[in-house]
Structure formats: structure tokens, C-alpha cells
């Protein structure tokens, strides 16, 4: 089964899967009680290679945060199936204790609300050092490394400020602290769940710039979860778009913005007001995203899709190669076309 799945064109990448840092295959997430479970995410697959910067974009109910949290196995109530291989190890098969060693050590996590992620009663320094202390690093060594990472993140006078408490820090500073906690044990992957959503634009810019800098300097892979296509453009290499529990579109950032394949991606790009241009009237996507418990039959986007036809209302489209590269789940890019292209290629070869 697995070999067949990997042979399917679900990756935009041609790099071999063995080299992947993170390789998610057919991750399916269920919540709720047994007789009527709610399927939050269905067959999500994604590959990330060392140093990759990938954005996972979606709206509320798309399953993007649930996916990110489930990679880290943060919600014991969810039932997960599929596989999440990180450095060759299936995280879904690890015991809870082994998972603790992955979280915060091999994979760092940054959350949306920096205040909620910090304990108000413990000093900044203690909190940044905590992952190291748990790993058994000596206090003086941990202190030194905490100071270094705070320095790296532009916290001025880091040694003194480590004695401060979270409430003495501004929102942007707190997000730096959270980032420092995620970075201190030298992870090779950071999962950032809407890290800038709660921040003002200028602070948002600072935090993104920092993440940009750190990830480049350290060769760190970043999975950025966001609802904001704007923040994606300058920061990531690749974008995966989720809609109602499924990945519907994945492409390089340039392709996604220039030739969006999925009608949903196209609609999103047109519906967001842009600072560099005004239109007499914004183009809209009709309706609202469906609740995970009440998805329409066929493609979940079909009731809102201007291009929907009969097949869209009956059958869920599979991910297939998109014309401009990448993959897309839409009946407008039928297999026939891809096959024809492939045949054409073969003929040329012959």
C-alpha cells in the first residue's frame, strides 16, 4: 500500500523521499465520539526536505492547525492514521515518552498566542532553558546557550532580560522568547502555527524577518501555518493550500501566485484587498467554508466554485499534477490531460 501511495504524484518535489526530513503520508485525523466521528483531515500528504520553507495555508476549519498539531501529536483526543515519518522514524508509532523527546528537541513549535505559551510566573530565562534542563544539560551551560539564542534573536541585553517575567515583555519580544524556546535545542524543523496573527503589522514584519534570518543561517526547515497569503509570499519556497480537511493545491510560491491552479486559490488571491492596487469592487467567493461535520458531497469547494460541473458534485477529486507544476485536486485538471502530456513526452522521447 505504502509503496503505491508514494508512487502517486503527491509531491511537487522530485527529490527522493528517503532524503525527506518530514514525510507525511495519508494523514487522516478524526475527532468526536465513536458512533459519529468528525473527520477533520483526510489523506494529507506532504514532504519537507532539510532547509525547506513550506507554508500550509487555509481558513478556519480547513484542518491546517489540526494537521500541524497532529504531526506533534499534541491532541490525545484525536485519532490519527497514516504515517508521519520524521528523519525516517514514524512519529505515530512512537510511545508517548519517546514523543516527548521529539517535541521541543528535534521539532520546535511556535504558537499563535505568545502570552498563552509562556508561564506568567516563571522568568524568561528559566523558560528558554527548560528544554535543555529537561535534557540534563547543566545550569551554567543552559544559561550560556539561552543567552546566545536570545542574542541571535535580537533581544538586547539578553543576560539581564532573562531575569524578567513575560508580562514585562511586549508582544513581539514575547514571540522572540517563544522562538528562542523552540530553537534552543537545535531542532532541524520548526512548526510555526500562525506565529504572527496576534501581532501588529510592524511587529509581524520583525518576527517574520527574524524567522527568515534564523532559518537561512541555520539551514532550518520551517512549516508555517497561516491563513494569510500575504505573509507567505516573501518567506516560503512552497505553499500547500488546504480546504475543508484536504490538501487541494500545492505549488512553488511563484507558481501559486502567478498561475494559481485550484479555483479556491484563484478566488482567495482575488478576494484579498491589495495594498499595491485598488479595484472598483472586490471579487468574492460566494458562501462560507463548510463545517467539518457537514461537508457537501463531491469536492468540498463545489458549492462555492464558479467552475463546478456535475462531476464536482459527485466525486472528490484526487490530487494530480497541475499544468504549471505542483499538484492540484480539481476535476478541471483531468487525468486524461496529464496522461496525454505524458504520452506526448514519450513520443518525443521515441
Amino acid at each position: 500500500m505504502n509503496t503505491i501511495m508514494t508512487a502517486l504524484p503527491e509531491q511537487t518535489d522530485t527529490r527522493p523521499e528517503v532524503d525527506a526530513l518530514l514525510s507525511v503520508r495519508n494523514l487522516t485525523i478524526d475527532a468526536g465520539t465513536k458512533p459519529d466521528p468528525i473527520r477533520l483531515v483526510q489523506d494529507f500528504s506532504l514532504d519537507m526536505f532539510p532547509g525547506d520553507r513550506v507554508a500550509l495555508v487555509g481558513e478556519s476549519g480547513s484542518g491546517k492547525s489540526v494537521t500541524a498539531r497532529s504531526i506533534m501529536r499534541l491532541d490525545p483526543d484525536f485519532r490519527l492514521s497514516g504515517s508521519v515519518r520524521f528523519q525516517g522514524q514514524d512519529l505515530l508509532k512512537l510511545s508517548d515518552r519517546q514523543m516527548v523527546r521529539v517535541r521541543g528537541h528535534k521539532i520546535g513549535m511556535v504558537f499563535q498566542d505568545p502570552m498563552g505559551a509562556l508561564n506568567p510566573l516563571i522568568t524568561i530565562g528559566e523558560q528558554v532553558m527548560e528544554p535543555l534542563r529537561i535534557a540534563g544539560v547543566s545550569r551554567s551551560e543552559a544559561e550560556r546557550r539561552a543567552k546566545d539564542v536570545l542574542d541571535e534573536l535580537g533581544v538586547v541585553n539578553a543576560a539581564a532580560r532573562m531575569k524578567a517575567y513575560p508580562h514585562e515583555f511586549s508582544g513581539g519580544m514575547r514571540q522572540r522568547v517563544v522562538l528562542a524556546m523552540a530553537l534552543i535545542s537545535n531542532p532541524s524543523l520548526i512548526i510555526a502555527d500562525e506565529p504572527t496573527t496576534a501581532l501588529d503589522v510592524r511587529v509581524q514584519e520583525q518576527v517574520l524577518t527574524l524567522m527568515d534570518k534564523v532559518s537561512k543561517e541555520r539551514g532550518l526547515a520551517v512549516l508555517l501555518i497561516t491563513h494569510d497569503l500575504g505573509t507567505v509570499a516573501g518567506f516560503t519556497d512552497r505553499v500547500a493550500v488546504m480546504y475543508s480537511g484536504r490538501k487541494v493545491d500545492e505549488a512553488t510560491v511563484d507558481n501559486l501566485f502567478e498561475h494559481p491552479a485550484h479555483p479556491y486559490t484563484q478566488g482567495l488571491l482575488q478576494a484579498v484587498p491589495r495594498i499595491d492596487q485598488t479595484v472598483p469592487r472586490l471579487l468574492t467567493i460566494a458562501g462560507a467554508p463548510p463545517h467539518p461535520a457537514a461537508r457537501p458531497a463531491g469536492c468540498a469547494f463545489n458549492p462555492r466554485c464558479p467552475k463546478a460541473f456535475d462531476l464536482c458534485r459527485q466525486e472528490v477529486p484526487e490530487l494530480r499534477p497541475a499544468p504549471g507544476g505542483g499538484v492540484v485536486a480539481c476535476h478541471h485538471y483531468p487525468e486524461a490531460e496529464a496522461e496525454a502530456e505524458a504520452e506526448a513526452g514519450e513520443e518525443q522521447g521515441a
Partner: peptide, 13 residues
């Protein structure tokens, strides 16, 4: 403020 607004054009961004 204006400079900080994310630009949805990958090249510019």
C-alpha cells in the same frame, strides 16, 4: 506601517 504590509507578490516580497 505601509512598508510592513505583506505584499502578495513573491518577487516584490
Amino acid at each position: 506601517l505601509l512598508r510592513a504590509v505583506p505584499n502578495p507578490n513573491p518577487t516584490v516580497a
